[in-house]
Amino acid sequence: MSDTITMKEKNIQQVSAAQKTMQILVKFFTYAFLILMALIVLFPFYWMIISSLKTLAEYRLNVPTFFPQQIMFSNYAEAFTTASLGQLFYNTMIVGVVSTLLSLVITVLSAFAFARLEFKGRDTMFGLLLATMMIPGELFTITNYATVTQLGWMNTYRVLIIPFLVSVFYIYLLRQNFMQIPNELYLAAKVDGTSDLKYLWKVMVPLSLPTLISITILKMMGSWNSYIWPRLVANDEAHRMITNGLRNAFTETSGDVNYPVQMAAVALVSAPLFLVFVFLRKYIMAGVSRSGIKG
């Protein structure tokens, strides 16, 4: 009898040992895969940073080095002055902040209207707005270009801000969020003597804060990264945005491009976005996952 029991125990031990090995193996491969993927993603950033610290001569070696022989921090100072990064940052910040603020106001008010107010044709109107999302953004570029040239808005801040203030996508995102807030809260606020606007400000906005932060981040990143539209309509010294600035500034008179200095400038420009991502990734992830695929 006792023999069979010990046999059983042994079996159990063996089974659990096998399971443990299995678990460890699965963990090992999962992490190996994740590390590999992380390396693939991070490598370009690594390459950007080491390139930005090389001399031009080292950069041009046929066999590239994986770590700079001589570290050139001066590239960063040079990048800042040659590209007049200060002015580029300033332009981008103005466009980014102003358009984000205005966009938030418009988004909040229209999302409230579509989520909470009752008026004739509300659903039809919302359907039409959603339908505009089907049209690819590039098509708007042409009509927008025609419009702003007619208005004489070329090379101004407003041409960079106004055409993209209304985002159907953000309105949709926020409306869905607003609609999840129980109707009783609205009725309770009515009983407590609030106006619609006060209810929106005191109850709905605080409750939708995560979505609003996601929208803010996405909108700021959008302004920071925008390239085609600013290139078309505002490419003068006074209004040039950061992405276009980086493109042109480093071509020397000989036609050569000083790549290490350009890389240094790119690193500087990426830094804010990088920080935003590190500190606010929770909200970015939430925004992206809520929106499905768009990032």
Binding site: P182, E184, L187, A188, K190, V191, D192, G193, T194
Partner: peptide, 17 residues
């Protein structure tokens, strides 16, 4: 309108903020 009636209302699910 409700906000000017001076009533208090307790909802079934309380509707606290």
């Amino acid at each position: 309108s409700t906000e000017n009636r001076g009533i208090g209302l307790v909802f079934q699910n309380y509707a606290l903020y």
